[in-house]
Amino acid sequence: MKNIKWVFVIYSLAAVAAMCGIGVGVGMRSIPVAAISILALFFVMGNGFKTKKKMREEGLL
């Protein structure tokens, strides 16, 4: 439990929320909601991978 990187937990929960948003958008047959959720997913996952790379280069992982 002491080795948990909380920033990655937050990124993963945000990515799951974006994926749920895609499902909601499809269920509502709303293209804007689905599109915004897809963009949010790309943004969140991209930032997560960028943060992981930065932390790996700094020796924090």
Rank of each mutant, 00 (worst) to 15 (best):
I38W: 00
I22W: 00
K54L: 06
C20R: 09
N47W: 10
F49D: 03
G46E: 01
P32D: 06
G59F: 04
F42A: 14
K53R: 11
G48V: 00
N3D: 11
G27M: 05
K53C: 01
L39S: 07
V9A: 08
S37D: 07
V44Y: 06
M28C: 04
A14N: 13
L13A: 09
L41K: 02
E58M: 11
A40H: 08
G23F: 13
S30D: 14
T51F: 05
A18M: 02
S37E: 05
T51D: 10
A18L: 00
P32W: 06
A18P: 04
L60D: 10
G59M: 01
S37N: 11
R56G: 11
S12Y: 02
V16T: 12
N3M: 06
K5S: 09
V33I: 14
V9Q: 08
A18N: 07
A35N: 05
M1T: 06
V26G: 02
G59Y: 05
S37T: 02
I22H: 00
V26W: 02
I22A: 01
M55D: 11
I36H: 12
V16R: 03
S30Q: 04
R56K: 15
Y11D: 03
M55T: 07
E57P: 00
I22L: 00
K52S: 09
F43K: 06
S12M: 03
E58N: 11
G23A: 12
E58R: 10
S12P: 04
W6Q: 09
S37K: 02
A17F: 15
M45L: 15
A14S: 12
L61N: 13
F8I: 00
P32F: 07
K53N: 10
